[in-house]
Design a protein around this nucleic acid. Structure first.
Lengths: 221, 221
DNA sequence: CGGTACGTTGATCGTGATCAAGGGAAGTGG
DNA sequence: CCACTTCCCTTGATCACGATCAACGTACCG
């Protein structure tokens, strides 16, 4: 007898929330650079924005929609490292070739700055260089938190942490909409779709979250 | 009946080895900077080299010995992100405070460059900046490989990958000595000491490695 | 209307965590 | 020098979590 308890409040939450990366830095200089290249590109759901291995000839910023950044291993396994949303930058760390693939989850609009322009600006602008360093350092710290989370948390806790972080960056209040499917969440958290679905069930039954449809949730407690 | 088979060659290896990060980059300018600060510091086993949260007022390079870089979560769980050895740099990514702790595994000798000197040099030296970017990008890619490995490989495979990578960076030929204990390896690979010990057993029985003492191994196949 | 993709739930099985015990090496104090 | 502790490695037994295999309902779409 070791099924999930269906009783209320049985799921221990909190106290171990991944130390949230501080509020997103302003990156004034970087933003200013993007303002010089206002052209927008649109991507339909599931379309590729940039492909692992291709020349990293630009950097991107998400204007709207959700982008998943992932790699595929030789066994066909996919790992989604992050979901990028409005205001997030993509591809800042790569120097020559993309070390990951970026795909549109829903309808996505991005701006891009040619790599050459970025490099030119970087050579002259000290503050921009510092912004980049902070950005990439935060990325590294985030990856290490993900490793820690994978090792020390069970599936429902990882999902809860994800939903919490996702909520802070998306909805200001009330319900949060999940633009991605269960498979995407599973590949992000390192589990199967079935486990993801069951983890949602655990969180609902324990009163940690409330859901109206499979893609809308609200944090409780 | 689902114990490990004790028969020879039963353990499927290879084909999915984490794409090894290329041979370590030269980092000529960075090395030159370190040559200007030849003073060495010595650390006894288990001693702290730098502490998570302290001001990142220097960067380090390992002269000899092995350093473990780790973080401790609020439940006491420890995650060792990397073992740094001769020639490796430590603390290049942090801008203000250390986001991890570095400890000596065995007797360790390091050199250090004051942060201020690094920053001064960075401001003037384009090549040095590029070296730093490559270094940190490789670090990020390495972390993402670690995540992928955690998700898609079983314990013996993870251990084998670790032993392979460790061997390439340590011993040129023949046997490789493990300076760290099972607990350190376990905390690096995200498993328990018992599982680590059993994983060694699997690799030995499958003919993937050969061991004389618990801290000396040789890769076969 | 059939096909497909997605979410959910159930049943079973395997990996690894956990609990427990024992052996060997090294250090300490009598 | 030996009793004693302590740490590390190993092995065994059991159990929980999550993967896997399977089935089903629903929404969407050509």
């Amino acid at each position: 007898m070791f099924m999930h308890s269906k009783s209320e409040g049985s799921y221990v939450p909190a106290t171990r929330v991944v130390r949230a990366t501080k509020t997103s830095p302003l990156c004034e200089n970087l933003s200013a650079l993007f303002r010089k290249f206002p052209a927008e590109r649109h991507y339909q759901p599931q379309n590729t924005i940039l492909l692992h291995g291709d020349t990293a000839d630009a950097v991107y910023r998400v204007i709207s929609g959700t982008v998943r950044c992932c790699t595929i291993d030789e066994d066909g396994g996919r790992q989604i490292f992050s979901f990028q949303k409005k205001g997030d930058f993509i591809g800042m760390s790569d120097v020559d070739a993309w070390h990951f693939t970026a795909e549109a989850v829903d309808h996505v609009i991005v701006q891009s700055v040619p790599r050459a322009s970025l490099e030119q600006e970087l050579a002259m602008n000290f503050t921009l260089r510092m912004e980049m360093r902070y950005l990439i350092n935060r990325l590294l710290i985030k990856r290490e938190h993900q490793i820690l989370s994978l090792i020390s948390h069970k599936a429902p806790q990882r999902l809860l942490n994800f939903l919490r972080e996702f909520a802070t960056t998306r909805s200001s209040s009330g319900f949060t909409v999940l633009p991605m499917c269960r498979r995407d969440i599973a590949d992000h958290l390192g589990m199967t779709t079935e486990t993801t679905s069951r983890a949602f069930g655990v969180l609902k039954n324990s009163g940690a979250i409330e859901m109206t449809t499979p893609d809308k949730y609200r944090l409780l407690d």
